[in-house]
Design a binder for these strands. Structure first.
Lengths: 354, 354
DNA sequence: CATTAGCACTCACCTCTACTGAGTGCTAAC
DNA sequence: GTTAGCACTCAGTAGAGGTGAGTGCTAATG
């Protein structure tokens, strides 16, 4: 019988004690003693009994002691058990306290769902304000979004403004350089050609087509086409995938970040976004709420941090991810409800949208 | 004779000592003792003499002691004197070490000067990376920029994408809601009308005109005009003035921010941008580099912070501001050179641009 | 008369010690 | 199986003493 098996077969008493320790510690970040448990979570046993149980839980790696004569503190594995086995009956999580906020939220995002940038900023702001953790949104992969149209307008010098509209609302404008000889009429013809060519394609397909076109003979003798390819090529050169983040400032006030190094760690994790990006990306095609606790993610940047994430859907299919990043000592039940609800709100907003 | 007069008439010795203390303290944030000064900045006096001079400087409020038996530390007033009287002969500031970087910088911004958003991000990034302070850019007041053209494109549902081009490169796109009956042809006519009406106007003048138009009789019977007004009204509703900021993460590594409260203070100052915005705004119409040290700005948020700022010009006239925000214990000479040089680079990029 | 050597003094900082109290593990009794 | 009792551990605090960097003052010096 492996440790995992032992953990899975915890008896009710042990579960109660573990639950008590974790809830208490989440409420107030101080090691929890046996006497304290008997007082605040009375279950008819003396401190000595609780001590025995706690010792068992420590042996299983669910709790640990900061030092010999201190109370117990949950380990990452402890939180994991808490999240998986103690919170799972989701009905027990009280959604009501947030219902009001969420109705309000749903109303607000309804008004701005046309502009994804504004929408996602609103989402991260709301998430972080409500939770005091760091709110994150992974926007839909632009590569998977469907081309709607491109417009080209002459600007100053030899510059042209390219406006790229995608079907789901991702709008991008970019100043590109072209042959200054081109007139607006030329540009219109180029845009028209591109609109026809790329109609209904995803960005991925577009770039693929572009590569093919560039080797096509037709492009060699038709100047207009070769120019169109050039324009398109410039426009599609993206600023890379981005991530909406907010709430670092509020999170800094959490007791978990009273240590300067913890703050640095958190901000570093947020600063070079690709760690988080890679992690969230894994959830982009899944359903439901996921929780990653501390070292569970192999990324060392996230050692003392946990992530609660859920994908949201656009037209039934998973599109992007919303998440909360906080300390491992996180109010998981609260965070899970929030992330879940917000994800649903977004999915719903998208659905009404089409 | 006021204290200020005494300060202005410091003799050479005192100036030398003050200079030594401040330079040393900027180099390493530890109280500077008399013995240390005689060793590292030999000027032919014994520690005792230096002590007497230091006592005088303290009486004038230029230095202070953290506690009785510690060395001296500069006060805000001390830094002020240092900046005004000891650094002013600008020729003494060595520009060379940065010359290389700056050439590089000039080349880089040359490539992106068409897109102000990208440009300003690049500027704050460069400033903060080179200095380890927080780089800030106040973009040109959109209200003062000159209208170039507006384009309207039908999007999904009853939505329209409005693309607003301004003469200096501020480009803004916005999804607005209009009467779904409007065809693309209608939109084109509306845009044409607006382009004619607003040609060469600033945003300020545009809003003004808009108010006037809305009370004009013509608007009442010409449906096209009234729609145009509506569209324009929606488009001009801005997301408010913004501020480009970057470098908080790097600044956190400065010893000045090893105290958690200092970090919180700094991030709070950056978070609600309007304090900084108001401060920088004062410099928007001035020339040259300005330095605000600690409490000199009445804003309590900036107590332990200093700002080195300079306006940059667009077409000869001051347009916006670049700045560095750091601890009062800042390397002012370095910061001043950087801000000054960067401001010049931007001005130059704009000039070549027209 | 400016400068300096000498000296007493101050005070942050470090270390050592002792004490306290919260909490534990173990064992024997219930 | 549960619990009372007890010895033990250890972080945290407070006080005492020593150290050293630095000062202010005064009297001697050139």
């Amino acid at each position: 019988m492996s440790i995992q098996d032992y953990i899975n077969s915890l008896d009710e008493r042990s579960r109660q004690v573990l639950f008590a320790v974790i809830e208490s510690y989440i409420h107030k970040p101080e090691p929890v003693g046996s006497r304290f448990v008997t007082k605040k979570y009375p279950m008819g046993f003396s401190p000595a009994t609780i001590r025995n149980i706690m010792a068992d839980l420590e042996e299983l790696g669910l709790l640990t002691q900061p030092h010999t004569s201190a109370g117990r503190v949950p380990t990452d594995r402890g939180y994991r058990y808490y999240v998986d086995s103690l919170l799972k009956p989701e009905s027990s999580v009280p959604r009501d306290p947030y219902a009001e906020m969420m109705r309000d939220f749903a109303r607000r995002i309804d008004a701005i769902k046309n502009d994804l940038t504004v929408l996602f900023h609103e989402v991260t702001d709301t998430l972080s304000q409500m939770s005091n953790y760091v709110g994150v949104v992974l926007p839909p992969k632009p590569a998977k979004t469907v081309f709607s149209r491109i417009d080209l307008m002459k600007y100053r010098d030899g510059n042209v403004v390219a406006l790229l509209l995608m079907d789901d609302g991702v709008i991008r404008n970019k100043v590109i350089k072209v042959d200054p000889e081109l007139t607006q009429d030329d540009l219109n013809r180029i845009a028209e050609y591109l609109n026809g060519e790329f109609h209904g394609k995803t960005l991925d397909e577009m770039t693929e087509m572009l590569v093919r076109l560039m080797h096509d003979e037709k492009a060699l003798w038709d100047k207009m086409i070769s120019r169109a390819i050039e324009v398109c090529n410039q426009t599609l050169r993206f600023s890379g995938e981005d991530l909406y983040v907010s709430g670092l400032y509020d999170a800094m006030d959490l007791p978990d970040f009273s240590d300067i190094n913890r703050i640095r760690q958190l901000s570093r994790a947020i600063k070079d976004k690709h760690t988080i990006l890679r992690l969230l990306d894994e959830f982009a095609n899944t359903e439901g709420v996921h929780v990653v606790i501390g070292r569970e993610s192999s990324a060392s940047e996230l050692q003392n941090l946990s992530i609660v994430a859920s994908s949201y859907r656009d037209g039934g299919r998973p599109a992007g991810v919303v998440a909360l990043i906080g300390p491992t000592r996180m109010d998981y039940s609260k965070a899970i409800v929030m992330v879940d609800t917000v994800a649903h709100c977004i999915s719903q907003a998208f659905d009404e949208h089409r």
